[in-house]
């Protein structure tokens, strides 16, 4: 669990209910010890700047090269994407996707809905969108797992999982479980 900034505690609470040993990590050395990484919601510019300033990027790139699962929600998705519309902000750039920040509007336009997600059985997933990014398009190996209004909101590519919404805010464990399943 990358703990530089954002809703770290909510993600940890979800991970604690699953079969894994979550830890909050803030240093390159701690990142290298992980078998997978969640990049939380928060401010993507802030988390990106902190990643650069405190030299965490090479360690995260190593995890990716080793094929360890990486799950980014909201800000985390923006950081994973290769392209960010109209922005030259820092990004990891692993995911074959183009995202647009705050594309649903400002905070008063934030919303909740329910989604059906490929690979998740049973009840639909309750999804909270907060100043959320839109995934404009995906290419290459990037596979769409859920859509809202005909646009992708959850995508998977090899060891990478990216979501525009926040399963951690409603105690939803099945999306994090998808990530853990990718480790096996």
């Amino acid at each position: 669990m990358l703990a530089l900034q954002g809703d770290v505690e909510e993600h940890l609470a979800v991970l604690q209910r699953l079969e894994c040993e979550p830890a909050a990590v803030k240093t390159a050395a701690a990142v290298r010890e992980c078998d997978g990484l969640v990049i939380p919601g928060g401010e993507s510019t802030t988390i990106g700047k902190l990643m650069e300033r405190f030299e965490l990027t090479p360690a995260i790139e190593e995890l990716h090269t080793q094929g360890k699962p990486i799950f980014g929600t909201c800000a985390g998705l923006i950081l994973l994407a290769k392209e960010i519309v109209g922005s030259d902000q820092f990004r990891l750039g692993f995911l074959d996707a183009q995202v647009a920040r705050n594309a649903y509007g400002r905070q008063v336009d934030s919303f909740e809905t329910t989604l059906s997600v490929r690979g998740i059985e049973g009840d639909p997933v309750r999804a909270v969108f907060i100043r959320a990014p839109v995934i404009e398009r995906v290419w290459g190996e990037c596979e769409v797992l859920a859509e809202f209004g005909e646009r992708p909101v959850l995508v998977r590519q090899g060891n990478l999982l990216g979501g525009a919404f926040h399963p951690e805010l409603v105690g939803e464990t099945r999306v994090h479980q998808l990530m853990l399943d990718m480790a096996r």
Partner: peptide, 9 residues
């Protein structure tokens, strides 16, 4: 939720 996103900042 927005308040949660600002945590640790």
């Amino acid at each position: 939720g927005l308040a949660e996103m600002l945590r640790n900042g």
